[in-house]
Design a protein around this nucleic acid. Structure first.
Lengths: 208, 208, 208, 208
DNA sequence: CATGAATGAGACTTCATTCAT
DNA sequence: AATGAATGAAGTCTCATTCAT
């Protein structure tokens, strides 16, 4: 199948360049901020011409959305793998909380991108960005539901509210860290936060 | 002291125009988005000339910050009054959660401004915006601490983590509502969310 | 009436700057060609900032249309005055033919603009440009009709066809001159062309 | 002579592709306008790669010139054949006028191309386009001269002026038709126009 | 010969900000 | 103090053209 191989090669090359641009954009956005980062800067960093960007993305906003989707996609996949590696939903939830904080602390560029740059776009694009986020939302909600089934989460809690609490708490913790001088360790906060979240979720003991 | 009276009049007039601009900016930002809202549009809506804006604000970003400070200031003051009207920190916390959601649902323009427009500025300005927010943070943290003293909040919880959870949860709930088609009632979610938050904060019964 | 005078002054100033831009655009278009003439070049020539152009014209094409309308407007007005100064339609027609060629020879920049630049725009704009041209068309047709009434133009000729002949002949003559090295005198051609046109229009003598 | 045959085949193939591109360009130019028609669109319509265009034409403008030359060449050849099929120059002229209008009405794409697109290029290219047009000019002028010899055209008329009148009139008539909503029939105008042109050209009867 | 992905110069236009009135 | 006409820097995106395959 030479033609197939050929086509694969082309596709691979295309994918490679696509990813190079995504990577360059992520770094450039995080470094200068979405609005203060010219497309030509991204192009230079990616080692391509300005016009090449537009062979892969409709416009600058679409590029931002792609970066978001690609990067959050990786996080979601990793999170799912992590979740699958745990016996119980409860353990998985705890692991997820730690992973969320740990991952973003280890990838400060990504943390900056998620917490700051991503919110700089027009309302219309915000909607589009919300789409891939829903995957992550679903993952959390499925864990909450599984926890209910396994008896580790109180059944009379609203699943969506629980997700809003879990994600909102993590997001706020990361945002504060990103906007702070970042002198403290974000991962260290995982137990403190999990302490609160677990208490909120766990069923009250016996006659309580 | 005619001069003083005169000066007061001047100050009042100045304050009035200042507030007119702030109000116009809030509405214009919410309507078009920060970046798609020209200064001249704000000026027209406020009934002043473009240049007049710059007699009251250093630049467009400073105007945004002022809107944020003014509006959040009102919320904080109201929240503080609300808090003072309750006997216990616990009741105050519950009231605050309800108030936060209720207020923003009743002021959708403000909700949009807080959740969307406010995040569209460069990282540097985000820092400045964080400043008035700290007042609100402190209010929450003081309630948590008071709750600990009153025995309604578990003493072994990290106060800052608790604040991150409370504020993060509310913020996420409002954000989801703002970005959604807003077909559901935000205030209705208050009991569901308070249920979770209260469980997280309350001390475990007896030997738990 | 100080306010009126004031307002007049403002309007006059505006009109002056408007005309300065129109003049600069005419020359710049003629010199470099519509597509090879940057807006900034026009601005510099008019002694204003780039952005100022856009306070007076919606965009570059609208500017071209305005130049066309202004300049053709002058020609039409002058032509009308010329026509009114003649006793008969026949004399007026002859004068018009001479004036058309003479005027454009004396204003080569305008000739270039009319014959070359004006046709470089998109079809949509071509339609808009055709509008002011219709005034000139009407002037010619009214003369033909008057000539019929006065007995100097054969009544059985189609007025519109006559106009197409008269204008088409002049336009072609000017176009050839503009595109040529312009070594010959355009005005000299007036009698030769009028000879033909007049024969076409005049009623056949007696029993012919 | 296999090599010759081979070479012919190659030449034929080359000519075929050349013509395919010319045809595609004509249609694409007429459909979108010269400036709004990308080379890649022509390539796609011709079924070749973008780069292939440049194996046949130096650049986009050269392609336009080629389309003009090819298409006008056909018209000129047909016009010449038409002329040769008539007994007298007078009949030939009348036939030419009718043919000019009739042909362009039957080929609206070509009419649009000749009257609109062709004029959208820079002055330099306009000169080049004028070249093949001269063939057509010469044809008209030769007919006028022949008419003089045959006694059907007044000998004291300027031949070039006569050509400017004939071509200018036809060109204007076609231009008006192309720019109009084209609700009327162009061929119908032939007799009206010929009526005028013939009167201009014919010698005055007897003692007139 | 043919391809088409990549190039990169360059143009229009916007809009926050200024300053003469 | 207020005005608003003018400024001009700067950025996204297009598209004719090239050249490695």
């Amino acid at each position: 199948m030479p033609s197939t191989k050929n086509s694969d090669t082309v596709d691979n090359r295309r994918r490679e360049k696509y990813l190079a641009i995504v990577e360059a954009a992520l770094e450039a956005f995080a470094e200068h901020g979405y609005h203060d980062c010219q497309v030509s800067r991204i192009a230079r960093r990616a080692g391509v011409a300005d016009g090449t960007i537009y062979l892969y993305f409709a416009n600058k906003e679409a590029l931002l959305v792609s970066v978001f989707r690609e990067k959050l996609g990786l996080v979601t996949v990793a999170a799912r793998a992590l979740v699958d590696s745990r016996e119980t939903a409860w353990e998985a939830l705890e692991a997820l909380v730690r992973y969320h904080l740990d991952y973003l602390e280890r990838h400060p560029v990504l943390a900056n991108f998620f917490q700051i740059q991503t919110r700089q776009v027009s309302a219309g694009i915000r909607q589009e960005i919300a789409q891939p986020l829903k995957e992550y939302y679903r993952l959390i909600e499925s864990l909450v539901d599984r926890g209910k089934g396994e008896g580790s989460v109180a059944v009379d809690l609203d699943t969506r509210a629980a997700r809003e609490m879990i994600f909102g708490t993590l997001d706020e913790a990361v945002s504060c860290w990103v906007l702070s001088p970042r002198v403290y360790c974000l991962t260290d906060r995982a137990p403190l936060l999990w302490r609160l979240l677990s208490r909120a979720l766990a069923p009250r003991v016996q006659g309580a």
